[in-house]
Structure formats: structure tokens, C-alpha cells
Design a protein around this nucleic acid. Structure first.
Lengths: 244, 244
DNA sequence: CCAAAAGTGTTGGCCCTACACCCATGG
DNA sequence: CCATGGGTGTAGGGCCAACACTTTTGG
């Protein structure tokens, strides 16, 4: 079936995507929020990056579009984690007005699909054509529209489960060469708990897909830390074994 | 905001619910499928119990409505597990025609939300006002409309994860008094693997929320098995501790 | 030589796995 | 008395948690 150009470009005003892009920033678990200006008060408000889907767009595709519009990134692993569809999501008139303005469509009810990613966004990307964005600590969020606060809370629970099952996510998040401390600290912040450094080292060294390099940190005023790297190929072999 | 009677009764033809009701039947993991008659060929076909949602209906609410229409049950624990929204879900014209007929609405694209339950449905319930239903083994499904085969496959993966996290689900599935064998067999069928009986007993007896009773099976031509029961109160105490 | 962070080993507990035989009951 | 399935114990391995000191480096 050929699609008319029109249907490819038409929004489907019943289903939206919201992306919870998490990252560690300033020693805190943070979520990327986009800015919008309240038409009435002129104040700056924040929301999750999101969008209605297009008539002929797959959900995953729409999620990647939102990710890209918000961050410029393309190759981050996104995971659908939950659908939010309470009819009173759109009970706040201000939120609906804003959305009708932005989409030029009459908005009734909207079901939104939540996506999740762990992503490193350089500061440089925070001013995108689709609006400014800011990292905000999940423990201390501003008031968010719709049920975005609930969506963030669910995402934080979910990312922990996800990381347990797919550790590769953190390694793609970290730089190619990383120290044990960086990795441990990332876990500590995401799980919001302390991790014993010795046990952590032991475990790290037992992972076949984490390779010690001979390189070390430079210019630190203490014993320099060893760099490790993630071996994708070994990881994939081990994981396809696990899923057999 | 007061809702007009009309909006409460109007279908929202963009989002639907599909319920994957799983159960153990005839020593196999089965899914409940409802029957429909193909208007063209007159043949009996099968599909997941599902429905469009109403304009003012919460997703969970809609899922319980579908459950109840298909089985007469009300108090089963349902879990939202995933949203399916590929635009080519509705690429099969027959499926769309059937749905337009059933709903009396013009159907374009539909995003569906998958719900999952482990439920015991007595045979007596298989003829409901909303159509006949049948248990069919998930390992040997007939051709299903839309992407229902994919939805079932995802649900089967998901129920295993869910049971790992919330064992109470199985206990509500079994009769109040159950034998170790019944429980073990249920796990074996759901996980599609053998479980060592001795280790299973050991584990069962270590669970504080599973209580040995003094009652035993009657009328079996071998040593009679002890009945156990599930202690909801103890279970809840332990689980609220875990989630702190 | 001092401050700061990196790195390292052992123990005990818990849970899982593997594995073989005797027990109670009905027919 | 036999066929059927119910019930039990032990040993080894893996994983996790707890815990304190020595090493390296820059300033």
C-alpha cells in the first residue's frame, strides 16, 4: 500500500510518546526536561521531551524521533517501559491548551507511551532547534505537566531492573575507557545506594567482557586509576548463551 | 468536570486493550482465545479477548472489563505488560473489516495495550454472552489476527519475569489447598522446564508464607500428598519489607 | 612527608544444584 | 504384594556481604 505524503506527515492526535532520558549529572540521577514558555504567565516551565506520533509512524520510530529532536542523538538504546492512559491525564486545561497550540489540533484524550534511555548528553546539545533542554535531578523536580512526574518515577524504578538484565547499557553510557570508580559511582547514583569498593572490583574483574587496559589516569594528585574497556563481542556471545 | 452520558458510552477508536489470559490446561500452558465467525468464509477463527477503550475509561478499567466479558471473572490480578503500535498492525484488510463491523466505527490505526493474567477459568465460563472462548496451547496456536501471535509470545516471556517477582500470583491461581506436586507442576509448565522435586520441597518448606496443613489427599492409590495453603497476611508483610 | 584515592583477600552465609532411596496407600 | 507417586538429606559450588590496610602519586 502506498502512503500519501499527507498521511506520513499527519499527526495522530490520540497517542503520544514521552521519553525519560536519564543521565548522571553533577553526582545526581537526572532527567532531561525541555523548556516551554507559559503563554499566559510568560514563565519558563519544564516537561518531558515528547510528541504525538504521526499517522504512519511506528511507536519505536516516534520515540527515536523524539530522542533525536531533544538531544541530537540517534544511536542510544531506547526501551518502551509503560503506557499511561488515564482519562484525567488531560484534566489540566493549561496543559491541553499548550498542546493544542503546539500541535494545531483539537486535543481530547491522549494515551502516551513511555520510553526510557540512559544517555550522555554533552552540554553542547542542550540548545537544539526544538527547544532548550535541561538536566534536572529526579529527586528534586519542578512541577511537571500531565502525569510526567509519575512517568519519571516509574522510569527510575524501571531503569534499575533493566540494568540488572542488560549491563551493556551502562558501558555504552560511559566513555570507551573508564575507571572502576566511574562505573561504581554510576551504579551508586542510579541505584541510590553505596557499593563496597572491594567487592565491586572483584566482580568487575570476574566479568569476561570487561577488559583491563594498561592505561591509567594522568595528572591526578593520587595514585592513578586503571582504565577498563567494554568488549562488545564477548558480551554478545555470553548474552546469547544466557538467552538460549 | 461532568461527563455526558454519551462520552461515557462512546468508544475511542484509536486505542484498544488485548488480554492474554494464561492458564494451565491439559498439562500445557494455554491462552484463552475467543471465537469469531469469519463473515466471508463462515469459518471459526480465534483472537485474543480485547476491545476498544471507551472515551472516558482508564486503561486498567478497560482491561478488567475485557477480562470480565471474556471470563466472568473480576478479581484476577491483571498486569499491563506492553504496548503494540506498529502502523501495519491493521494492514490485513480482513481484520480491519471485522473490527469495523463489530465496533460500527471507521477504523484507521490502532495502538493496543497488552494485559496479562494467570487465571483459572472453569469450563462453565467458556460460553459467555460475549462469545465462546477456548483454551489453546501457546505452543500450538492457530493463525491469529493482527499481531496477536506476537502479543502472546511477549506475554509468555513476561509472565515468567512477573512470577519471579510476585509469587503470590501462582497461589491465587491454585485452589486454596494445594499439594506440592500441583505447585511444582504449574511452575514446570509455565517455565517449560523440569524442576527437581527434592529441591522444590526444601524451598517450599522454607517459605514462611506457605503453611503445611494436616490435611491430605483422599482416595489416591498411593501415599497421599499433604495439602499446603498460602498465607496472604504473612506474604504481604514480607513483601512490603522487600520493597522498602 | 602528607593528603587523597586506588587497589587488594578472606571469611561466612545463603541459595542453588545434583543426586537415590524408603514410605504410605489402594487395589 | 505390588504399583504408584510422595516425601526426604547431604555435599559442593557460586555469589554476595562484611570488613582494614598498603600503595601510588602530586603537591
Amino acid at each position: 500500500m502506498l502512503l500519501s505524503r499527507k498521511s506520513k506527515e499527519m499527526l495522530y492526535p490520540h497517542v503520544s510518546i514521552d521519553c525519560v532520558l536519564l543521565g548522571v549529572y553533577d553526582e545526581q540521577l537526572c532527567v532531561l526536561l525541555t523548556e516551554r514558555t507559559n503563554a499566559g504567565t510568560g514563565k519558563t516551565e519544564y516537561k518531558l521531551p515528547g510528541s504525538l506520533i504521526y499517522e504512519e509512524e511506528d511507536l519505536d520510530e516516534a520515540a527515536y524521533r523524539v530522542l533525536n529532536e531533544a538531544t541530537g542523538l540517534k544511536r542510544v538504546r531506547l526501551k518502551q517501559f509503560r503506557c499511561f492512559g488515564s482519562p484525567d491525564r488531560t484534566s489540566n486545561k493549561e496543559d491541553v491548551l499548550w498542546l493544542e497550540n503546539a500541535s494545531k489540533l483539537k486535543i481530547g484524550r491522549i494515551v502516551t507511551v513511555g520510553y526510557l534511555a540512559l544517555c550522555k548528553v554533552r552540554k553542547i546539545m542542550l540548545e537544539e532547534k526544538y527547544g532548550k533542554a535541561q538536566w534536572m535531578p529526579v529527586a528534586n523536580l519542578p512541577r511537571l505537566p500531565f502525569d510526567h512526574e509519575k512517568i519519571v518515577a516509574e522510569a527510575v524504578k524501571e531503569i534499575r531492573v533493566w540494568l540488572d538484565m542488560e549491563p551493556s547499557i551502562v558501558f555504552h553510557y560511559l566513555p570507551t575507557l573508564f575507571t572502576a570508580y566511574q562505573l561504581r559511582r554510576t551504579y551508586e547514583i542510579i541505584y541510590d545506594k553505596n557499593i563496597d569498593a572491594r567487592n565491586f572490583h572483584k566482580k568487575l574483574n570476574s566479568l569476561e567482557y570487561v577488559i583491563q587496559t594498561e592505561e591509567t589516569e594522568k595528572g591526578v594528585s593520587h595514585r592513578s586509576a586503571r582504565f577498563y574497556r567494554f568488549d562488545k563481542v564477548k558480551y554478545k556471545k555470553l548474552h546469547s548463551k544466557l538467552n538460549n
